[in-house]
Amino acid sequence: MIRIACAQLHLTKDMEENYHKALLYLHKAKLAGAQLVCFPEGQLSEYTPQYAGLPKENIAIALDHPYIKGFCHACRNEGIIGVFSLTLTWDAQIYSTMMVIDETGCIKAIARKNHIVRAPHFYEQDYFTPGDDGFIVVPTSAGNIGLIVCFDRHYPESFRTLALKGADVAITAVANETTEPLEIFQWELRIPAFQNSFYTVMVNRTGREGVMDFCGQSLVAAPDGTLTALAGVEEELLLANMDYEKSKILRNEKQYLSLRRRDMFEL
């Protein structure tokens, strides 16, 4: 049995404040018995893409930034795996990413968002470069963790790819606001959990930021499509237990993956 913690946070323009809040919630997760803690999209800053065409300076950090070193140190000291969602810059580009740091403080993987949208409140193409990593599964002591960065979850292939690569859980860091179709977004996680017989997790921001109201309602869905845990609309640490043996049993019973005929799919 693996206990996961979802840090549903209200974030501000103050990067230092957000950094220390992340460390606090990482510590709370450890005290609550979690082996794994995850954070919402772009957890170190206000959600910049809500505005079109702002200067790009100071919206991202480099891989050698002290905050990343601090997260590595905290994971090692607490003995917990962290799935962080950071806006990173390297090779003169900016990426929306998810980073896995294991309980020894080592960076195990970085996944970059593959699909970059441009729509009201989500002017991401003004800032981010699309990743070309595909969809990554990271072996850890808390299972094989699949990573999906926010908008990438709208493609069913994202979840199926992770399942075929052996993921035990698919974690997606998001920035969902109250005006979006919240019930549909919930089903968007529950249905692939059922179809792939694995756990799915969505961790969101909450509270007012600029022109956006983030809705919270982070969730963990079980391999049968039911809700294991659902957060409210305020800041909180959502906890859930994941039984990977249950996943294996359902996967054998349902046979959705084992009976899949690759030759029938043209795309």
Rank of each mutant, 00 (worst) to 15 (best):
D64G: 10
Q186H: 15
V201K: 02
R260T: 12
T104N: 09
C72F: 11
D133L: 07
G70P: 04
E17R: 15
S247N: 09
A92K: 15
P156V: 07
V137G: 04
N18I: 01
R3N: 00
G225E: 03
L31H: 13
N252Y: 11
N114V: 03
L11E: 00
K69H: 15
E103I: 10
R160K: 00
N58Q: 15
A7G: 06
L26G: 02
G232N: 13
E236T: 14
K13R: 12
T97G: 12
M15S: 14
S247R: 04
I61L: 12
L44W: 11
L31C: 10
Y127C: 08
T104F: 05
C215A: 13
N196M: 08
M202R: 09
E253G: 10
G210T: 06
V201T: 02
H115M: 11
T179E: 14
F84A: 09
V233W: 14
A29V: 05
G33I: 02
T129L: 03
L31F: 15
K13M: 09
Y47G: 06
R251M: 08
S85I: 10
L219T: 07
W90T: 15
E236W: 10
E16Q: 15
P49T: 04
W90Q: 15
E124F: 07
E235Q: 15
Y51N: 03
L44N: 03
A222R: 03
N77M: 14
P192D: 04
A231Y: 04
E234Q: 14
A32Q: 09
T206A: 08
Q43V: 13
T48P: 01
I107V: 15
C38L: 08
Y123C: 11
G70Q: 07
G70Y: 02
Y95W: 12
N176S: 14
Q255V: 09
C6M: 12
A173N: 00
I110W: 04
H10P: 01
P55I: 05
I61N: 07
F71H: 11
A193S: 09
M212P: 04
D263L: 07
T161Y: 00
N144M: 10
L164C: 01
E57Y: 14
S85N: 06
N114T: 13
K69P: 10
D152N: 08
G70I: 02
G225Y: 02
V138D: 05
A32T: 02
L237Q: 08
D102F: 03
T161S: 05
A62V: 14
Q186M: 13
G166Q: 07
A142K: 00
M242C: 09
L23Y: 03
R190N: 08
L88Q: 08
